[in-house]
Amino acid sequence: MANLVFGVGIGVFILALVWVLALIVCITFSRSPTKIASLGPLSILVAVLVSVILIVIPREVKEKSPEEESVVYDYSIVYRSSLIAVMALFVVIGLVLYLVSHAMEPVLAKPLRKFVR
């Protein structure tokens, strides 16, 4: 109960901060004539993703029975698995970018002789 601010937990303030930052980015870049205008909706999607992750993370039960106190759960496998999934996603993105920018670069023919006029 020591982590309460104005009667609510710190998670509410984290969610509010995330959404305020997302709305500021969305409003700031909404009138831009360049491609940076797509950063606004992207920030909203990131805020939704962060909100879902923070809501899904299991919370600690306030009162535990003696039987439940003796059982130890290892939640680190969830975080490790999600970290591996994110790393695998970025490896795939990196490989695709490598293929597009380096491996599939066209090789143009060069003339055998240069004619001087």
Rank of each mutant, 00 (worst) to 15 (best):
L23C: 09
E63Y: 14
V8K: 06
F13M: 12
F13H: 14
T28G: 02
I27Q: 04
L39S: 05
E60I: 10
S51W: 01
G7N: 13
D74N: 15
G9D: 15
P41V: 04
V71G: 00
S51K: 01
R59V: 12
E67G: 12
K35N: 08
G11M: 14
W19N: 07
V18C: 03
D74F: 12
L49K: 01
Y73L: 13
Y73C: 01
I10Q: 13
L54F: 13
K35P: 00
P33T: 08
I53W: 03
V12E: 10
F6T: 09
L23A: 09
I14V: 15
K62I: 13
E68L: 12
F6N: 15
R59N: 13
I53M: 07
V56Y: 03
S70Y: 06
I44H: 02
V56L: 11
I14P: 03
A47D: 03
L45Y: 02
N3S: 14
I53A: 14
A16W: 06
D74V: 08
I27K: 02
E68Y: 08
G9S: 15
G7A: 09
S51Y: 01
A22C: 05
E67Y: 10
G40M: 05
V72F: 15
V72W: 14
E68K: 08
I36N: 07
K35S: 07
K64L: 15
V71D: 03
P58D: 07
A16R: 00
P33S: 11
V52T: 02
M1I: 07
V48N: 01
L42Q: 06
A47F: 00
V8F: 11
K64A: 14
L17C: 08
W19L: 04
L15F: 07
I10C: 10
V71K: 13
W19P: 02
L54I: 06
L23N: 08
V72H: 12
I27C: 05
P41R: 07
F6H: 11
G11F: 13
S70A: 12
I36S: 09
V12N: 08
I53R: 05
W19E: 02
S30C: 03
L17D: 04
I24S: 07
L21Y: 04
I53K: 05
I55L: 14
S38K: 06
V52G: 04
I44K: 01
E63C: 03
L23H: 04
E68M: 10
G40A: 04
M1F: 11
S70Q: 12
R59W: 07
S30V: 03
R31T: 05
E67V: 09
L54W: 04
S70E: 15
A47V: 04
L49F: 09
L45H: 04
D74E: 10
I10E: 10
V18M: 05
I57C: 03
A2G: 02
A37E: 03
S65F: 09
G11D: 15
P58M: 06
G40H: 03
V46E: 01
V52Q: 00
K35E: 02
P41W: 02
G40N: 03
V48L: 10
V12F: 15
V18H: 02
V61L: 11
S30G: 00
T28F: 11
E60L: 10
A37S: 14
Y73M: 06
C26V: 00
S30Y: 05
I53V: 14
I57T: 13
W19G: 00
V8C: 01
L45F: 08
L39M: 14
I24E: 02
L15M: 09
V72Y: 13
S30D: 00
E60G: 11
L49C: 01
